[in-house]
Design a protein around this nucleic acid. Structure first.
Length: 513
RNA sequence: CGGGACGUGGCGCAGUCUGGUAGCGCACUACACUGGGGGUGUAGGGGCCGUAGGUUCGAAUCCUAUCGUCCCGACCA
C-alpha cells in the first residue's frame, strides 16, 4: 500500500486544491497565459474539449438545433434592454471603447482619443441579447417556430478570483437559444436540454450528476426558471456542470421577438437558453483524477490506447516497431462507442518506462508496452489506468496475446468507462445524507472535518424573497449553498429545516465551487 | 476588490535580513554503461533573478510603482 510510488507529488487527501493544479500541469492540460484569469489550453486538454464538443454537438443536433455564430461584440444599448440581465452581468464586463492605437510622446502605444467609439461595445458574457435581436428578425409567423439555434463560442466575464477550467475570465462554451410559441413548449424544451446535459455528463464524461431546479436566488439573471446538473467532486464540493433556463417572455419583450398566430394576432415568444463550458473539464479532473494524475474516460480521451515499444536504439527496433504498428493498425480499424478507436503508437526515441508515466499522468485509459520478449512470445504488456496498481505496489501489467489484446479492446474500453462511472457514483451516493432535520445537525455535520462532508438533502418550504435571503445568509455562515431540487424528488412531508413551515420539497445543500 | 504569501534557467527551490554582479535538484544535450522497466556514470547547454523606475561606485538583494500567481474573504448562471 504505502510502498506505491505515485506519479504526483501531492495527494488528494493532503491538499485537494494544490492537487488539482498539479494534475493540470502534470497531465499537460493547460498553463498560465500571463493574462489575468486567462489560460492556454494545451493539446491534451483541448483534445478532451474537442471530444466533449463532438459528442455534445451530436446530441444538440439530434434534438433539432442548428449551429450559428454571433458576434463577440455586443452594442451597449443592446445589452441594456433586460434589466435583471444587466444587474447580473454589469459588474464583470469587458468593454471596448477605442478602435485604434497611437504612440504617445514617450513612444508608448495608447488608445487614440480621436478613435473613440461613439457607442462602446461589450465583450459578450453570454449572448441572449444579440441573439434575441436576430430572433426578432427571423421570427414572423407561428410557422417559424420553434426556432432552435446553438453556438460554440468564447465568452468573457471579468472574474475576481479565477481557477483553471472552473472559473476563468475567458472560457469556451456552447450556448443554445430557442424561441417557442408558448410557455409549455418552452418549459418542456428547457427540461429536454437539461436531460441532454445529464446524458452527456453521465454517459460521455462518466460523471454522475443530479439534475434539478435551482432555487430562486441562484437563477440566471433574467430567467424565470433555472435548472442545473450538479456533480460531486472528490472533496465533497458541488460543481454546477451545466444550466438550462426558461426565460419566459423577458427577453422576447426586450428584443421584440413576436410572431403572428394562426388567428392573426401578435404574440410574444417564450425563449430558453442553456450552456455547458470548459468547466466540464474541471469536473472530469475532480471526478476521475487520482494520486497518479488524471484518468480520462475512454469516450472523451484524445487517445484511448497508447502503444509504447521498448526501443533500445539497436537493430531489432525496426522489427519491434513493425510488430507494434500491426497492433496499432488492427486496433485502429475497430470501433467503440460508435466511433473508431483512437490509438497512438509512440515511437519517439526514449525509454518506454519513462514515457509510460507521462501517459499515466495524462490518464490515457489503456497503456500497452511491448518489448522484444513480448514480441517473441506474441504477447503485449497492458496496463489499465483505472486500476493500475497491483497488490505488490507495482503497476499491474497484464500480458494477453496480441490477438487477445486486439480483440478484447472494445470490451475493455467499455469496462473502463463503466468502472469510472461506477466508482464516481458509489463515492457520491456514499456521501449524501438525507437524515438531517435541523440546523444544529447541519452545523455539526459540516463542522466535523474528520468526516467527508459531501451533500445533505434537506426538507424545505421553498421560501422566497426576504425569507429566502435569510436562509441563504444562515447557510453562508456555514460556507454552504443551496444547490438544486432534484427532478425525481417525491412529495415530502414534515417541517422545513430552515423556516419550520411545512416542507414542500427536498433540496441539496453543499459547499460549492 | 480587501487580507496574507509569492514571482530567480522547462519544473521545484536556495541565495534577499547583513548589496559586490547566480547556485542546487529534477528535466534537457552528448557519450558510455545498463537492459522488462520512472536505471547509472562522465561531460555539457540554458537564467541580464516578473517588468519599469529610483538609491548606490556597485542591486536578485534596499525603496517606489506596476503586472502576474496562489491561499482566505467578498463576489459570482
Amino acid at each position: 500500500m504505502s510502498n506505491i510510488r505515485h506519479a504526483l507529488n501531492v495527494k488528494r487527501a493532503d491538499d485537494f486544491a494544490q492537487w488539482y493544479q498539479e494534475v493540470i500541469s502534470a497531465a499537460d492540460l493547460a498553463e498560465e497565459s500571463g493574462v489575468r484569469g486567462c489560460m492556454v489550453i494545451k493539446p491534451w486538454g483541448y483534445g478532451i474539449w474537442e471530444r466533449i464538443q463532438r459528442l455534445l454537438d451530436d446530441r444538440i443536433k439530434n434534438t433539432g438545433h442548428d449551429n450559428c455564430y454571433f458576434p463577440i461584440f455586443i452594442p451597449l444599448a443592446n445589452f441594456e434592454r433586460e434589466a435583471e440581465h444587466v444587474d447580473g452581468f454589469a459588474k464583470e464586463m469587458a468593454v471596448v471603447t477605442h478602435h485604434r492605437l497611437i504612440q504617445d510622446q514617450k513612444g508608448k502605444l495608447v488608445p487614440d482619443p480621436a478613435a473613440k467609439l461613439e457607442e462602446p461595445l461589450v465583450v459578450r458574457p453570454t449572448s441572449e441579447t444579440i441573439i434575441g435581436d436576430a430572433m426578432a428578425r427571423w421570427v414572423q409567423s407561428w410557422r417559424d417556430l420553434p426556432l432552435k439555434t446553438n453556438q460554440w463560442a468564447n465568452v468573457v466575464r471579468w472574474e475576481m478570483r479565477t481557477r483553471m477550467f472552473l472559473r476563468t475570465s475567458e472560457f469556451l462554451w456552447q450556448e443554445g437559444h430557442t424561441a417557442h410559441a408558448d410557455a409549455a413548449e418552452a418549459k418542456e424544451h428547457t427540461l429536454r436540454m437539461l436531460e441532454v446535459y445529464r446524458a452527456c455528463a453521465e454517459e460521455d464524461l462518466a460523471m454522475p450528476v443530479i439534475a434539478g431546479e435551482k432555487p430562486e436566488n441562484e437563477r440566471f439573471p433574467g430567467a424565470v426558471e433555472t435548472w442545473s446538473i450538479e456533480a460531486m467532486m472528490q472533496d465533497g464540493k458541488a460543481l454546477q456542470a451545466g444550466t438550462s433556463h426558461y426565460l419566459g417572455t423577458n427577453f422576447a419583450e426586450a428584443s421584440g421577438i413576436r410572431y403572428q398566430d394562426p388567428e392573426g394576432s401578435q404574440q410574444l415568444c417564450h425563449t430558453t437558453s442553456w450552456g455547458v463550458s470548459t468547466r466540464m473539464i474541471g469536473g472530469v479532473i475532480m471526478t476521475h483524477g487520482d494520486d497518479d494524475g488524471l484518468r480520462v474516460p475512454p469516450t472523451i480521451a484524445p487517445r484511448q490506447v497508447v502503444i509504447l515499444p521498448m526501443l533500445r536504439g539497436k537493430e531489432g527496433d525496426d522489427a519491434l516497431i513493425e510488430y507494434c504498428q500491426s497492433l496499432h493498425d488492427q486496433l485502429a480499424k475497430q470501433s467503440a462507442f460508435g466511433e473508431r478507436l483512437r490509438v497512438l503508437l509512440d515511437t519517439r526515441p526514449g525509454k518506454a518506462a519513462a514515457k509510460r508515466w507521462d501517459y499515466v499522468r495524462k490518464g490515457a485509459p489503456v497503456i500497452i508496452e511491448v518489448g522484444g520478449r513480448d514480441m517473441d512470445n506474441d504477447v503485449v504488456s497492458l496496463l489499465r489506468r483505472d486500476q493500475m496498481w497491483a497488490e505488490n505496489g507495482k503497476p499491474d501489467f497484464q500480458t494477453p496475446t496480441r490477438e487477445e489484446a486486439a480483440n478484447g479492446m472494445q470490451e475493455l474500453l467499455y469496462a473502463i468507462q463503466a468502472n469510472l462511472f461506477q466508482q464516481a457514483k458509489e463515492r457520491r451516493d456514499a456521501n449524501i445524507r438525507t437524515d438531517i432535520t435541523d440546523i444544529e445537525g447541519l452545523k455539526e455535520h459540516f463542522a466535523d472535518t474528520a468526516v467527508h462532508p459531501g451533500w445533505v438533502q434537506v426538507a424545505w418550504s421553498k421560501p422566497t424573497g426576504a425569507d429566502l435571503d435569510a436562509v441563504v445568509e444562515t447557510l453562508k455562515d456555514m460556507k454552504l449553498t443551496v444547490r438544486n431540487v432534484p427532478m425525481d424528488d417525491t412529495p415530502t412531508t414534515g417541517a422545513c429545516i430552515f423556516t419550520g413551515a411545512p416542507a414542500v420539497e427536498r433540496i441539496y445543500v453543499a459547499k460549492a465551487y
